[in-house]
Simulated assay, not measured.
Amino acid sequence: MTSDRHVNAARSKVFGEVAELYDSARPGYSDAMVTEVLAYTVLGDRAAVEVGAGTGKATVPFAALGIPLVCVEPDARMAEVLRRNTASYPNVRVEVGDFEQWRPGGRHYGLLFAASSWNFLDRDRRWDLVHAALAPGGAMALIRNPHGIHDGGLRVELAAIGDRHGITGSPHRFLACDLSGDKPGNWDQAWPDTECRRDGRFTDLRSVRFRQNLRYDTDRYLGYLASLSAYRILPDDHRDQALAEAGRLLDAHGGGIDVLQVTDVFLARAR
């Protein structure tokens, strides 16, 4: 039987197939989130390390503030776009490889952050790896961007398309009101707070949520869907059909979709 570890590792490598689409269609991260993370962090003269940096959606707002960054990205195709997006920031270094095989080489960091990549890491090793990379008192920030759909009828129809084509982890599970609370983590993936407390090597645990309403036109939303691992792992014909059906539906509903984008942040500090 294929383990969750191997499934997650495989899914983490599918984004490079559509690296340019990922970069153009995926939403970014708010300045307020970056401010919150840096207010919590005591960097001193230490650099930050980003795990699963992708094309730099979260990298750029940190880099623009002059934060020295080491970006670990498992897919060379994603790293190529990342290098282009950070070319004007000499404080950014990109290292290609899996975080599980990456070695700090004696370096200890003041901040480690992972934006939408934590769930792809080896669950048996990720807390050990984070703790080993951080200096005492160093901060970790785990960041996710789930969204909820404002139109309940549209959500039901989009979810039905996903069900017909065997899409697991569909982004159409939630209404905006499902994510309206102040407490992060009321979505499909387990919030890391409990796991972190059980580990015991971290302190000062905090959870923060930010919100913004976004409007996607049909083409951009289809690009967003096509960049998700749940769609990338489908056979090509199933994916194409699912996207075509979603496109017709969105065009019939005014040519786009309104969503509530939330940014959930988990913060902890190495003891």
Rank of each mutant, 00 (worst) to 15 (best):
E20D: 13
G52V: 04
G169C: 07
F62R: 11
H147S: 09
E100M: 15
L249K: 15
R239L: 06
S227P: 00
M78A: 05
V259S: 11
A115T: 11
A64E: 14
E36V: 07
T2A: 13
D75M: 04
E50N: 07
A133E: 01
D258P: 03
D98N: 05
E95P: 00
R173Q: 12
G166H: 01
A58H: 11
F99Q: 10
L82S: 07
V49I: 12
L43Y: 05
A132N: 02
L214W: 05
E20F: 01
S88A: 13
D199P: 06
G153D: 13
M1I: 06
A76Y: 07
R269P: 01
L205W: 10
A160E: 14
I257K: 11
D124K: 15
E95L: 03
H253N: 11
E195Y: 07
L249R: 14
N85P: 01
G169L: 09
L38N: 11
S170F: 03
I149G: 04
V96K: 02
D45M: 11
A139L: 04
G181Q: 13
P90A: 11
A25F: 03
R232E: 00
I143F: 07
P61T: 11
A270T: 04
G247C: 12
G66I: 02
E20I: 04
G138N: 00
D204S: 13
Q101T: 09
E50D: 00
P171W: 04
E95D: 06
R144C: 08
R269F: 09
V130N: 08
A230E: 09
D258F: 07
V130C: 10
G56L: 08
A47L: 08
L179S: 10
H131P: 01
T194E: 13
W118M: 08
A76M: 08
K57Q: 13
A230Y: 04
G16P: 06
Y231K: 03
R201K: 07
G256I: 12
D163H: 10
N8T: 01
D23R: 03
G256F: 13
A141I: 03
G152C: 09
E245V: 05
L228I: 00
R26G: 00
R232V: 01
M1E: 08
G223Y: 10
H108M: 07
A139C: 06
A244N: 10
